[in-house]
Design a protein around this nucleic acid. Structure first.
Lengths: 121, 121
DNA sequence: AGCATCCGTTTCACTTGCGAAACGGATAAT
DNA sequence: ATTATCCGTTTCGCAAGTGAAACGGATGCT
């Protein structure tokens, strides 16, 4: 279960995770691309381009390009909707699941290290 | 105090926060810029360009440009080191403190909403 | 059938970020 | 007093993201 995370602690957790991500220079994803990825994996589908664009309040081309990038990294896949062939359904991949799983572990690791070594300002 | 945050919960918290940030399109900061900002505010100083570059494993010009952006948003300020005038010390600003404070609140808000409404996948 | 509407993508011109290398100014070493 | 070294910044050429608008293809309407 979650906790009543205080703002300062939350920020510190944020820092540890983001800094670690920058260091690894792992798939160097944009904030938008990451948001899109998380939407697809942690939110009930089906996910269409327009739906994602509306929810994130960005233009459709932005979603298209983000999908290009994520698809090329095999983190996500496109599938034409059989019901309405104008629509595109965004689907998950094994590689994407693994990636996010590891990312989640990275966050919890950051949280764990924060417990033993309290922040310094 | 912190919690043993489980990976899935951590990811969901991450999603809520990032998505909210994208929606607001608030100061639209790069991941690197955000990492830099958090470093300056949550880590004991003094902070120099080379130090930050080394810690984040990025090139010095990248730090310089990030400081340009953050400075222009008044989230951070430069000051020549009086001891060694080759160095530049990165300092905090009132506006930056407020910004991060609000960001922390946004994270905790996301965590709170997660408690009442468990994720759906 | 014909026309209007809704999709996602592509084009366009623009902005922004990137690393490597070169640069000027400040300090250290001889 | 030179010379060498270290600092942050500025070029340079390049890669990638942005929204608006136009586009082709699929569906809905009459």
């Amino acid at each position: 279960m979650s906790v009543q995370l205080e703002p300062v602690e939350a920020l510190d957790l944020w820092r540890r995770t983001i800094v670690e991500g920058v260091r690894r220079e792992s798939p160097d994803l944009t904030t938008r691309q990451m948001a899109l990825l998380l939407m697809v994996y942690l939110t009930p589908g089906p996910h269409t381009v327009r739906g994602l664009a509306a929810h994130l309040k960005v233009s459709k081309p932005a979603i298209t390009r983000a999908l290009d990038k994520l698809g090329q990294l095999d983190l996500v896949r496109r599938k034409v909707d059989p019901q309405d062939r104008r629509s595109v359904l965004v689907q998950r991949t094994v590689h994407g699941s693994v990636f996010l799983r590891e990312y989640g572990d990275m966050i919890t690791a950051a949280a764990a290290s924060a417990e033993v070594a309290p922040r310094a300002a």
